[in-house]
């Protein structure tokens, strides 16, 4: 039985797909057989971030409609063993997903994989609900600013009321807070909420803090999950995050302003 983890946020553009790609890749690097499922039907992005956009033949909607089987549809990553991608359809919309169809596909994947990462679309409509409905755990991606925090709060409410676990009265979804685009310099200037502020408002356990980094943009543009860039601060922060998801206690890094030399080295190269 696979563990199903939804990566969600409510708000768009906070780094859900980047985080799904990084976490999925990190779990596979740790030897766990992992599949990342793109639930953003109609706005297919995951394949770009993972650098496999030219290898998409069939998609999630084809599998749900029985037009292709999983074996034909899953894309095996060329860099990391144990890593697969189930791409979204670009031509359909989010109503193409049915609860029964999603359940059937997840059950089929569950028999074969250790982890299923569901990359949720933004918003709180059917697509996002579908991505979180079957989840065992949730990574709530939040930027350190008020609108993102409020949207995360909203999604946390839905996780505890609209999921399968909630409806069946099972133990609730395990919620993790992933703070992305964190910039300690701007926190000091009062332009950004601090880790403590966000933790206080959302009151869930912190699983990672990803610093704002040029490396993330570079990684996205080159189709390389940023976690593979082990030199970068963001890559290291995602590696820490994956370790915490797997139950390891890892101290938090990149929470304070780094020495100038380090920043220069990072942006200079």
């Amino acid at each position: 039985m696979a563990k199903i983890i939804v990566v969600t946020s409510g708000k768009g553009g906070v780094g859900k797909t980047t985080s799904s790609a990084a976490i999925g890749t990190g779990l596979a690097l740790a030897g766990k057989k992992t599949v990342i499922v793109d639930f953003d039907i109609g706005l297919r992005n995951l394949d770009l971030i993972m650098g496999c956009e030219r290898r998409v033949v069939y998609d999630f909607v084809n599998v749900i409609n029985g037009e292709a089987n999983l074996k034909q549809t899953l894309i095996k990553d060329k860099r990391v063993d144990n890593l697969f991608i189930l791409p979204a359809s670009q031509t359909r919309d989010k109503d193409a997903l049915t609860k029964e169809g999603v359940e059937r596909v997840l059950n089929e994947l569950s028999a074969e994989f250790d982890f299923i990462i569901c990359d949720s679309p933004a918003g709180i409509e059917s697509g996002a609900m579908m991505a979180l409905y079957f989840a065992d755990e949730a990574v709530v991606v939040t930027n350190p600013e008020v609108s993102s925090v409020r949207d995360s709060d909203r999604i946390l409410g839905m996780l505890s009321s609209k999921s399968r676990r909630a409806e069946q009265g099972l133990e609730g979804i395990k919620e993790h807070l992933l703070l992305t685009r964190y910039n300690p310099e701007r926190v000091i200037k009062g332009e950004m909420l601090s880790v403590e502020d966000v933790k206080e408002i959302l009151a869930i356990e912190l699983v990672g803090v990803i610093p704002e980094s040029q490396a993330v943009l570079n990684a996205s543009n080159s189709g390389q999950p940023v976690i593979l860039d082990e030199e970068s601060d963001a890559g290291q922060a995602y590696l820490d995050t994956v370790k915490r998801l797997l139950g390891e206690a890892v101290p938090f890094r990149f929470l304070t302003v780094e020495k100038k030399g380090f920043i220069k080295r990072l942006f200079g190269g």
Binding site: D153, G157, I201
Partner: peptide
Amino acid sequence: RSGQQIYAKGADLIIKGAVGAG
């Protein structure tokens, strides 16, 4: 959480946690 609404009809309401914005 934000977006949730709780109504205690004819009753007191006791909340152990926080009530989020919205």
